[in-house]
Design a protein around this nucleic acid. Sequence first.
RNA 1: GCCGGGAUGGCGGAACUGGUAGACGCACCGGACUCAAAAUCCGGCGGUAGCGAUACCGUGGGGGUUCGAUUCCCCCUCCCGGCACCA
Length: 862
Amino acid sequence: MFFAEDLQADMQNKYNARAIEREAQQYWDEHHLFRAAETTGKPKYYCLSMFPYPSGKLHMGHVRNYTIGDALTRYHRMRGYEVLQPMGWDAFGLPAENAAIANNVPPAQWTYDNIAYMKRQLISLGFAIDWERELATCMPDYYRWNQWLFLRMLERGIVYKKTGAVNWDPVDQTVLANEQVIDGRGWRTGALIEKREIPMYYMAITKYADELLAALDTLPGWPERVKTMQANWIGKSMGVRFAFPYTLEGKDEKLWVFTTRADTIFGVTFCAVAAEHPLAMHAAKRNPKLTAFIDECRRGSAMEAELATMEKKGMRTGIFVTHPLNGEKIEVWIGNYVLMGYGEGAVMGVPAHDERDFHFARQYRLPIRQVIEVPGRTFSTDQWQDWYADKDIGRCIHSGKYDGLDYTHAVDAIAVDLKAKALGEKQVMWRLRDWGISRQRYWGTPIPIIHCAGCGDVPVPDAQLPVVLPEDCVPDGTGNPLNKRPDFVNCKCPRCGQPGRRETDTMDTFVDSSWYYMRFACADQKNSMVDARVKYWLPVDQYIGGIEHAILHLLYSRFWTKVMRELGLIDFDEPFAHLLTQGMVLNEIFFRRSEGGRIVYFNPADVAIELDDSGKRKSVTLKADGQPVESGGMGTMSKSKNNGVDPQSLIEEYGADTARLFMMFASPPEQTLEWSDSGVEGAHRFLRRLWDYCARNERAIRFRDSSVRVNDWTKEDSRLRASRGEIHKILQQANFDYGRMQFNTVASAGMKMLNALEKLPVETTPLNANLPLQSFRNPQLQLMNESVGILLRILNPIVPHITHALWIELGFEKQLGEILSAGWPEVDQTALIQDEIELVLQVHGKLRGNMRVARDADRAQI
RNA sequence: GCCGGGAUGGCGGAACUGGUAGACGCACCGGACUCAAAAUCCGGCGGUAGCGAUACCGUGGGGGUUCGAUUCCCCCUCCCGGCACCA
C-alpha cells in the first residue's frame, strides 16, 4: 500500500497534482525565481493585484484576482521582462473589531493569525510573488508614513478640520459604520440611529478635482467604463451660485443656492434648505413642530441611495426671501432631501422644470410656473413629462427680458445681471466632496495630533513618529477602546509641555490602500516613505482588482499620487498605467421560506440536483431531508446567502492548477464568473489528458534532431503541413488573446492544441518497436517536439506547476532552459499559408454555400 | 432614485474591424472497452418540418440603419456593481 502524495512527479505515473505542485513550489523557492531586482537591465513590468483584507481565509474572488495577476506576471516574465509581483495585507479595518467583539480576541492577534493562514494558501496556489517585499498596513513601519504624510498635508492645508455627520448609536454610545446600520437601527442594540455632527479631519480632494478629471484622458490603459464612472463621480457642472436676499431680526442676510438651471430662475416658487442649515435652526427656535421635523430629518440615513429613494418631506419655516430678479417673496422650506454637505445646503425650487421639485410642489400644493416652452408640446401641471427638464430643446417664457432665449444665452444673461447686483455669478460645481478620514475606531492608523488646552490641536513632531497603536485592546462595541487607555491618551503637549490629550480617532483604511503599491518598491526602507526604487518600478504597469473598487479606492490612490508628486516625493502623475477590473464570482443561491416568512439559505454543496434525459433540471432538493428547495438564481458568493465555495477544499481535492485553469477558462476576466462543480471536473480532466498524452508519447516528444531544418520538414507532406499550420494558427490566436487579456480563450486554445496534437499523423510503429529513433530522422517527431514545446509554454502562465514538471520530464529544459526563461514561442508565418482556402457565398447576407479553392486560384478559375 | 455594466443552445462561454452564429468546455444521448462499475476512447448534440438532400426560425423584448446586425442607433424589461464609515 502507498499514499498518493508520496509519489514522485514521474512521467509514467498518472497525473499527481499534489506531488507536482509541491515539487514545483520548492523549486521556485529554492531558486528565488520571483525575487525582483532593479539591476537586471531588462525592461521592468510591475504587475499588481489589489492586496487582500485578511478576513480569515481566501475566497474565490481572491483566487480569481491573483490567478489573473499571476498569469500576466508569468506571461511577461516569459516575454523577457523583469517582473515585480508583490503581495501585502490591507490589515486595518472593521471586521477585526467585530471578530474581537464576537470572540474576545484582540484585533491584532486575529489579524496576524489570518495573515499567516492566507499566506500559506497563496503559496499553495503557486503565485509568482516576491515575498521579500511583503507588508501589512497594521505594522508601525508602514503606518508611520500615513502619519508623516498626513502632517505634510496638514502643513499645506490639504488636511483640514470641520464637522461631518456620523451614525450615532445612543445605546452603545458609539459611532457606527453604514454597514452596521440596518433599517435605521443599530445592528447590536436595535436602537434608532441618529445623525450626529462631530469634528473630523478632511483631505481636500476637491482641490484636485480638475486634474483628477482631466487626467482620465491620459489613461488609455483604463477601461472606458471606469473612466466614465470616475468622471461622473467627480461630476463637474457649470452653474450659477446666487443669493436670495432677506432680512432677519433687522439684519440683511442672503440665502445662497447653486443651480445648473439658472435659465429657469423665473419659475422659482419656493426654496428648500437642509435640516442643519442655519436658517432652519433659526426658524426652529420658536417653533416646536419645526424642531420635531428637524429631529426627524436627523434620524434617517446619510446614505445617498436612501436619500434618493425616500419619501420627500418638507415643512414651511415661515421665513421669506426675495427673488433676486423679479423681487417676489419666496417662502423657505426645510426639505429632508437637501444635503448640508453638498453645495450650499440650500436649493431653489422650480417645480415646472425639475422632477423632484414638481412632485414636492404637488404634494404640498405649491404653485407650478412654466417658464420654458417647446413648440408643439403642451405643458400640464397634472403630469410630469421628461421634456420639462430638457435644457437642450426649449426657450424661456414668462421670464421678462429673457423671453425667447435658449439655455446657454439665458444662463449667460442671467449670470451677468446677477453679478451686476452682486447677488451671484457663474461657478464651477463639483459633485465630488472632500474626503473625511477620521474614524472613531480602534483598529486603524492613529491620527498624529495632540489636543492641548493652551495650544489647541498640535501636530505630533516627526521625531515622535510613529504614534504606535497599542495592540492588546479588545473592543466591546461601546465606543473607541483607545479612550479607555490612559497610557495612550495622556501625553505632553509638544509645544508647551503641559499635559495634553492624544487624538483617539484613527484614519479611514482607504488611506492605507492609497499608496501601498509604492511601498512595495521599497518595503525595507526605514528612513523615508519612498526612495529611488519607487522611481524605477512605478507607475504600476498592470493593476488588477474587483470592479467594486472602480471609484473610491482608485480615485483616492490617484489623489494621493498627486499630493506626493507635489511634495516632490515622486515624479509621476498617475499610479496605474493599465487597469483590469475583474468581475465578481457568483454561485447559485438556494433557499426555503419558513412559515414566519423567514428565509433560510442552503449551501449549494448540500443541495442535490436531478436532471432529465435531455440534461434539463428536474428537481432540486436538500440532501439532508430530500425535500425541495427553491433556487434564487446567481448571486455573489457571500456569507449571508450561504453560497460560498471554499477554495481550500478545491485545492486539496484537485490541486492549484485545476483551480487556476477553471477560474481562467470559465469566463473572461472582466465578466462575472459563475461557479460550476462540473466545470472544475472538466478542467481537471484536461490536465490529466495533457499529462497522459505526454507520458504516452514521451519517447517521440523527446526526439529532436537539430540537423533537420524546420522548413524542410513539411515540404513534401501536405498533411504535416496542414497540422503544423493548425498549431501555429492556434498559437497566433493565443498570443492575440494574451495581448487582450482574454484568458478563457487562451485556455481554449490550449485545449484545441492538445486536440490537434492527438490527431497528429504520427507513425508510431518504430516507437512501439523501441527501435533507435535517431535512425528515422522523422519529421513527424520533430513536429511533435515543436508543438508540445509551444503548448507547454502557452499554458504555463495559467497552469505553471504541471507545465513546469512536464517541461523538465520531457527534456525541454536541456534544450531551451527553465520554462520561465525559455522565451515565448514565435509564430512561423510561413506555416500559416494554406494550400486551399474556403470561400463563402452569401446572397443578401444569407449563407448560400461555400467552396474550396486553391490558394493561388485566379478570378477566372473561381 | 442616480451613475456604470450585462443578457447568445440544457449550462459556462466563442465569434478580433458590420460578413459562415454556437469555437472550446460542461451536461446529456448512443457506442467501444469491462463480469460489472469508474476511468478512458469514438460518435451525436440550437429549434421546427422532412427518410433525406434541404427549408424555415433563432443572439432578453420592440423599432431603426445596412446588400448583410450578437456587433451600430433609439426605446423597454430583467439582472449585477457603485453611491462617499464594508473592503
